[in-house]
């Protein structure tokens, strides 16, 4: 019998008490138990960033994080960005700048962008590149993604 554990966490602002198998990753629990399928499974081994979520505000790969390790923490996924049917300014701008092609990397890219802009509203190009350096995009060549983030920075908006 697989050992289970009760965990208490906050997901997109909502408090949840869950019972999880100790050998499941946070990614599996989000997608399979909570139906939060915005978080993607790419490589499933820590290399691509498709599974990015914010853990206590910091981006992490949820495929490499045991769900039990999220006990007591707050999780933010792409679903938390904007109410159903609306777009967050980051999503809007990614759209406008052509920073989305197949879209598989997009939830991860958007979350690292959110964390970057929350902590540093006017990042320079180097800071932008560093922030997205754990997220692989096989479509855009990154140029449009960097452009979108630049367009969102305070410097550009002013």
């Amino acid at each position: 019998m697989m050992m289970k554990k009760n965990i208490h966490l906050e997901i997109n602002g909502e408090i949840k008490d869950l019972t999880v198998d100790v050998n499941r990753t946070l990614l599996e629990v989000l997608r399979e138990d909570l139906n939060l399928t915005g978080t993607k499974k790419g490589c499933n081994q820590g290399e691509c960033g498709a599974c990015t979520v914010l853990l206590d505000g910091k981006p992490v790969s949820s495929c490499s994080l045991l769900a039990v390790k999220a006990d007591g923490k707050s999780i933010f996924t792409v679903e938390g960005l904007a109410p159903e049917g609306q777009l967050h300014p980051i999503q809007q701008t990614f759209n406008e700048k052509g920073a989305i092609q197949c879209g598989f990397c997009t939830p991860g890219m958007i979350l690292v962008t959110k964390q970057l802009l929350d902590s540093n509203p006017s990042p320079d190009e180097q800071e932008i590149k560093e922030a997205i350096s754990g997220n692989i995009c096989r479509c855009t060549g990154y140029v449009q993604i960097i452009d979108a983030i630049k367009a969102l920075s305070d410097v550009t908006k002013k």
């Binding site: 960033g49 992490v60 690292v112 560093e130 350096s133 754990g134 997220n135």
Partner: peptide, 9 residues
């Protein structure tokens, strides 16, 4: 080491 997503944990 690795990437920011790894270094946070």
């Amino acid at each position: 080491v690795g990437s920011p997503l790894l270094r946070n944990i």
